[in-house]
Structures are given as C-alpha cells and as structure tokens.
Design a protein around this nucleic acid. Structure first.
Lengths: 222, 222
DNA sequence: CACAAGAATTAAACGATGTTTAAATTTAAA
DNA sequence: TTTAAATTTAAACATCGTTTAATTCTTGTG
C-alpha cells in the first residue's frame, strides 16, 4: 500500500501526502467534535480539507478507518495518563487518574465526548492495541487494590480481582454518563471519585474507611 | 392523525389497520433481534410484513417512531418488574429485581440486547414517559436505602441520595455490559448483584456487612 | 532537457437506504 | 349504487458511503 510508505522518503510527493493526511484527520476531529461521528460526512470532510472524496479513501480510508486512527491515538494518550497515576497513597492514585483524565478531556471536550460515544459504539476500544483497552485498563485498579491490602488499608475480604473491576466500572460509567451529556466534567470527577471511594470503603479497615468517608462527605456536600 | 383513532371503532378498516400495525411491530422486533436496530431496513420490514413501505410510515412511522414504540412498551414492562420488587429484606429486594430482569430478558435475549443498545444510543430511555426512565428508576434504590437506614442495617453515614444512584449505576453498567456482549445473563446477574452488595457494604453496620460479605463470597467463588 | 512509467488525484457513477409524492384502490356512508 | 374520504401502492427523491476509470502530476531515466 502506498499509505504505508508515507514520509518514508523525503520526496515532495511523500511530504505532501503526509501533510494532506494530517489535514484530513485534523478536519475529521473538528467535524466529529461539532456533531459526532455519525454526522461526519465524507463529502463534507473532503470539502473542508480542500480535497476530493477518493483522496480521503487513498490517504486514510473510509469512515471506519478514520475512526480507528483517531481512537488509536486516543488510547495511546489514555495509557500515558494511566501510567502517570501509579503513585501512593492508594486513594490519591485513583484521584490523580480521574483528575488527569478530566483535565485531558477538558482540552477539547466536544471532541472527546463524541469520540468516546463513537468508540463505545464501534467496539473499537475492545479491539484496540491487540488485547483490548478494557483488559489493560482494569489491571491498574486490581494492582492498586492488592497494594492496599498489603499496606493494611483494605481487609482483603474481597479479592482484588473482584474489587478492581468494580472500581474500573465506576470510572467507566461516569465517563459514559459524561459523554452522553448527563453531567459535565465536574460531574464526571465527582461521580467517578465517589464511586471509587465507595467501592474501597466496602472492604476498608476502620481508619482507612474514615478517611474515605470524609472524602466522600467533602465531595457530596459541595 | 388517522393512527390515533386506530380501533376506536370496530369497523373493518380499523380492525385491519390495527392488525397490520401489530404485524409490523412484531416483525420489527424479530428483525431487530436478528441483527440490531441499525440493521433494520424498512424495505425488509415491509416485505416480511407483507406490506409496502409507505404503509409502514402510515401505520407506525419511520425508524425512529418504530423504535420509540418498541422502547415505550419495554419501559412499561420494566416498571412493572420494579414495582413487583418492593419487598423485605433489603438485599432480597435488589436480588429479586435483578433476578426478575434477567428472567425477563431471557424470554427473548437477542431482542432485549438489541433494544437496550438502540435505546441507549437514541437517548429514548431518558425521554420516555415524560421525565425519563432514569429519574424514575433511581427512586427505588434511594427509597430502599432509606428503609435500610431506618431498619438499622445501614449506618446512614452516606446519604441515600448518594448511595441510591451508585446502586442504580451498578445495575445499569451490568446491563450495558451484558447488552454489549461482554458476558451472558448469568454474568449480568453476578455482576449486578456483586456491585449492589458492595455499595451496600460500604455503609453497612457490622452484622449486615457480614451477611453481604457471605453473599458476595458465594457469588464470586462459583 | 524531454519523456516514459508509475502513483496520486479527480469526476462521475453505483448501490443502498430512509423518506415522500401522487395515483390507484378500497372502504364506509348517503 | 354512488360518492367522498382514507388507505395502500408504485415510483421517485435525496443522501450517503464507496468504487471505477480517466486525468494529472511527480519521479527517475535516456
């Protein structure tokens, strides 16, 4: 395929193609942010990019390929955020991830909302990067719960393999509800954090439980 | 509209129209169960129902109207199930609702999966019956939590207005994951129940907490 | 520098789908 | 039986994703 060799040599042609491809993806992100992926029309995209329809098919692909490229870029960014959140103490680890995610989404809220909706619907998140973003992202809460048991914060009465996915579910549901417009990014922060802290509280030893309760109280009073 | 007077008189015409309308909706449900709402083609539906395309528009409407009718029927059924689950003790109330839902979905699993996916995507659940199914369905866990506090099962350290939506979220996420094919109906039962019991445990008094823990252990060991 | 080969771009069309229009048909009442 | 209204129908319309075949342009070569 010609596309695979984009930019491999610094020929005029390759550079122009790479530049056009970036233009296509940039305008696609903009259009998706405006009205969602379903409303993205290839003809509109071609007009906005100053190209014709078959050029888009040549340089990127059809609607599904465009979405796949955009989702893949997003997944890479999300993984970086998660990797940056492996810190102590336990509850700060979850709080930092949620805060980082919210800040990241805030840089282009309309786009990320539309992208998550499209990604969820297409099943692309689960196919992304080999084994699925779900399987990858759920590992961190499991590991963090294991650390919390070792640190004497959790009782360990509930296996980390049970508690971890529940915690990940709290974040996931909050993200979906934000993407679907049920609340804004502050609602996302609050909903995700309260859910995570509640899950932790269910297996927390008394002292840690009190810490979580005061955090929940602070989140739900204001 | 002619449709509104369907069956208002027992004329031959009215009866035939009502019968055809039912045929359309029955075949629509069948086609949706086969391949999902997005794959439902009006021409296919017309052929299956032994009618032509504009007749469907006359008797029911376009794709969105068809979906709206089907979703509305589903919401009525779901409300009936929820109303039937207002029982004691507290954890049995949630368990009965989840069990009833799973049994209900099992009667036509392919259809309900497709209907939930379509309903979630269209936002029809939130528009359904005036104030939205979400706002209605979240009331029961809130009330049940309030009763649990009064009964001395929960500490009340977390407001029922906070705990109730979290519990409803557990059921909602399990339903979505089932609809999206991440697990089967048994997985739905288990995921929903474990989530609900975890939420309750976060605010449970010791004796109730132990009851919940043994239930969770029974669910996650098998 | 001119030219031939190959690649990228374009105009146009194809196929599918939701929806609507206008004519034909059927029904209920006078 | 006839007439007026309503229903059903065949056909077309509009839009969209996608593909084909011809045109234009770039690159390497004689």
């Amino acid at each position: 395929m010609a596309v695979e060799t984009l930019g491999s040599r610094e020929s005029t042609r390759s550079k122009n193609m790479a530049k056009r491809r970036e233009t296509i993806l940039r305008e696609a992100r903009s259009l998706i942010a405006d009205e969602g992926f379903e409303a993205l029309k290839i003809r509109d995209l071609a007009a906005r990019a100053g190209l014709t329809v078959p050029t888009i098919y040549n340089l990127v692909g059809g609607k599904n390929e465009i979405l796949a490229v955009i989702i893949e870029e997003m997944v890479v960014q999300l993984r970086a955020l998660q990797d940056a959140a492996r810190i102590d103490p336990v509850e700060e680890s979850f709080a930092k991830l949620i805060e980082d995610l919210a800040d990241h989404f805030a840089t282009d809220e309309a786009f990320y909302r539309a992208a998550f909706i499209a990604g969820d619907r297409s099943g692309l998140f689960e196919q992304s990067s080999g084994e699925g973003i779900f399987a990858h992202f759920v590992q961190q809460p499991i590991e963090t719960c294991t650390r919390a048991v070792e640190a004497g914060l959790l009782r360990g009465q509930i296996a980390p393999e049970v508690l971890g996915p529940q915690i990940y579910g709290c974040y996931r549901l909050a993200r979906q509800d934000w993407a679907n417009g049920y609340f804004d990014l502050n609602g996302f922060r609050k909903q995700a954090l309260v859910g995570v802290f509640l899950c932790l509280a269910s297996d927390a030893k008394p002292a840690f439980r009190e810490r979580l309760m005061s955090k929940i109280a602070g989140l739900t009073s204001g």
